[in-house]
Design a protein around this nucleic acid. Sequence first.
RNA 1: CGGAGUGUAGCGCAGUCUGGUAGCGCACCUGCUUCGGGAGCAGGGGGUCGGAGGUUCGAAUCCUCUCACUCCGACCA
Length: 478
Amino acid sequence: MTVLGHSNAAPQNRHHLSYTGFRVNRPGSRFPRQDSPFMRLSAYFLPILRDDPKEAEIISHKLMLRAGMIRQEAAGSYSWLPLGFRVLKKIEQIVREEQNRAGAIEVLMPTIQSADLWRKSGRYDAYGKEMLRIKDRHDRDMLFGPTNEEMITDIFRHGAQSYRDLPRNLYHIQWKFRDEVRPRFGVMRGREFLMKDAYSFDLDAEGGRHSYNKMFVSYLRTFARMGLKAIPMRAETGPIGGKDSHEFLILADTGESQVFFDRDFYDMDWTEFSIDYDDAAAVGKLVEDFTSKYAATDDKHEAAEFEKLPADRRLSGRGIEVGHIFFFGSKYSEPLGAVVQGKDGQPVTVLSGSYGIGVSRLVGAIIEASHDEAGIIWPEPVAPFKLALINLKAGDSGTDAACEKIYGALGAKGVEVLYDDTDARPGAKFATMDLIGLPWQVIIGPRGLKDGIAEVKNRRTGERSNVPLTEIVDRFSA
RNA sequence: CGGAGUGUAGCGCAGUCUGGUAGCGCACCUGCUUCGGGAGCAGGGGGUCGGAGGUUCGAAUCCUCUCACUCCGACCA
C-alpha cells in the first residue's frame, strides 16, 4: 500500500494526490481507503450493542452480535459487518497460505451447481433435504452447493490424462449452503458458511497416504497460527464416505461434542511444524506422533482403550470441530470416471481425499475458546486490528496531537490500528475496546501526557505498563 | 420434521387476560455541567404494534389464516 505524507501528520481531512493522480490515503485522512491497516472509529461502521440480543444463546454468538461483527439476515445466514469481515479475511488468508505451503493449488468453483453431476455420483437423491434445490428459468435442476467433490473430480478428470498429472491437490474457499433443519449458535452452525475444501488426487494408496498426511500437518500448522490447539481425533466419516478420517477439534465448554483425549497432547510442541512436505517419511512420522495418542469424540470413543491410560492422563471435555479430513479412495473417481493413463499405458482410476476447514465457523470457535466477562480476546494473528489507540480526551489539543502523531506513525509502518478519536467518555471507550477484543490498547490521556507516557494494556492478561510516547511506535512495529 | 414459545422504536422490554388510538430503560439528537472503567440535568427525534382478512362505533389487545424468528428433541461441518 502506498502511503504518502509525513508519519507525524497533523489531523486534517484533505485528501492528497499521489504522483499518478490517484487519491491515496494517509493516516491523517479521516476516511482512509478500505484496505487500510488503520481506521478512525469516528469514520468506521461499528454498531456496538450494550445488551445481549435475545436470539443469541452461546457466548460467541452474543459477542459477535454485540461487537457489531455480524447481522443475521435469515435463520443461519449472516451479513459480515466490517469488524467481522476483517477477522474472516484474516482466517481465510492463514488457511490459504498454509494450503499453498503444503502444495495445494487454489481454484474457485461456483456456488450454484447443476444437478447432473450429482446424479452421476448418486448423491442427488442421497443428500436429502439438506441440499437446497433450485430451478433455473429453463426449469433445469440446479442446487446451491453443499460441497464440491463431484465438481472438482469432474474438473480434474477433464484436465488430467496421464500419471504425470498426479499427484495434485486442488482447493477452494467458497460459500456453501446446507439447509439445516435447525441452524443455531450463530456462525458456528449456520446454513450458509465459508469453507475451505481441498481435494487430492493420487495414483496409488501410498501416494494417497502422503497427500492425506500433508494435509494433516498443514492443519496442525494452520490452527497453531491462529493460536489454537486443534486436537486431531479419529472420526466418523459421515455422508461423505471413506475409510481414513480425522476431525480437528478445539476445546471449549460450549463445544457440540464430548471428547476424550490423552493429557500428553498438552505437553506436545504445537508450534514447531517446520517440515519438508516432500519428505514423506518425516511427514508420516509427525502424523504418527499426533495420532498414536488417544483422542476421540464420543461417537468414536472406546472406553476400554481409554481406560488403559493412567488416570491422571485421561482428560475429557467439550470440543468444536474446525476441520475434517477424509481419504475416500475411488468413491467419486469411479462413478465420475476420473481415470488417467498409467506408466504401462493402462487406465488407472485415481484415488482421492477431501479436506475441509470451516472458515466462518472458526470465527465463532475462536471466540468460544478466547473470551472473558468483558468480551472477546483475539489471538493476535486473527485480530481485526492489532491495537486500539484510545484518546481519552478527544478535543483536547494535547491528547489530540499526541494521538495523531502516534496514529500516523503506526499507520505509516503498516501497523493495524483502530483509533478511537470519538468524544465518548473514558469508561465507555474502555468497555467498547474490551468488548471487541483487540490484543493491545494504547491509552493516551492528559494525566500520562504530562509525563510523556501512554498506558499500554494487554487485553488478554490485563497487564498495564507505562510506556514513553517516543517508544510506542517501535514497540508495535517491530 | 415433532414439541414449546416469541414477534410492539436500533437493542432489551411493559402494555394484550379486562378493546378507547402506544409506553419504559439503553442507544440517538441539542444544550449546560462533567470527563482514567459504560456520567448528571434539561429539552428533543423516532414505532401504527410481523403480514392479510374478519368482528366492532373503535383493535397492539378479540377471531381466522399466514409469515418469520427462538428454544427442546431428532440431524449435522
